[in-house]
Amino acid sequence: MSVATDILHTNVQTGKETIKMSGQKVCVHYGEKQALFDVDLDIVANQVISLIGPSGCGKSTFLRCLNRMNDTIDICNVSGEITLDGQDIYDKAIDVVELRARVGMVFQKPNPFPKSIYENVAYGPRIHGMTRSKDELDELVTSSLRRAGLWQEVKDRLDQPGTSLSGGQQQRLCIARAIATKPEVLLMDEPCSALDPIATAIIEELIDELRENFTIVIVTHSMQQAARVSQKTAFFHLGKLIEEGPTEQIFTNPHHKKTQDYITGRIG
């Protein structure tokens, strides 16, 4: 009996969990409208955490707080504290440009730039001046494409436009583009919602591999996807964080009735 329970619980208790990012009492207002209410959420290093919840519950909003993408929206106002490695990212001393290089983002719809595949990946390193020579840049582009699992497919056509790739390839190109700036955290906002099952599976496999080097926060509408790729799951509802915990627990035995109702598809 005790052996069995040990096996059951090893998954959850692998070693020490270091907290990479953390939100404390995060509130977000869009003008008058409050979109997030006192969200407290820790993001553990080298884990995948998925944010689930009905549309409009504030998942993207929270995600966009993590790399201050909300700064680009004039009416958006963030309060509370969000830290990256213990440092407040909304601090005056923080350079947003540098923060976004450290906390990369992949969007719902693949959005390759109207440039060649090579230029797409080289974009981040170029604007941040990350490489000293052309060779170094080549090397970085190649390794990013490799890690995004796209190298084999595009190595002979790096000068073709990124938009000429298929949807799944485009999304991997966007992932390659994001990891080329060597981020520590990767934010993904519904990265597979526009892809077919095979492309989705490839991306999921990729996410699993990327976990070794990155901390990943993924917003998804697919319960199955959250269950497949993530170690932690957080459920949002109407701007509040309802429940957060190990993925197994959330999907087999959620503690909160709202979570249960949402993931089993019942009217809340």
Partner: peptide, 9 residues
């Protein structure tokens, strides 16, 4: 149906 949580149990 890919049951979840209560339904899965």
């Amino acid at each position: 149906r890919q049951p979840m949580a209560g339904d899965l149990r």
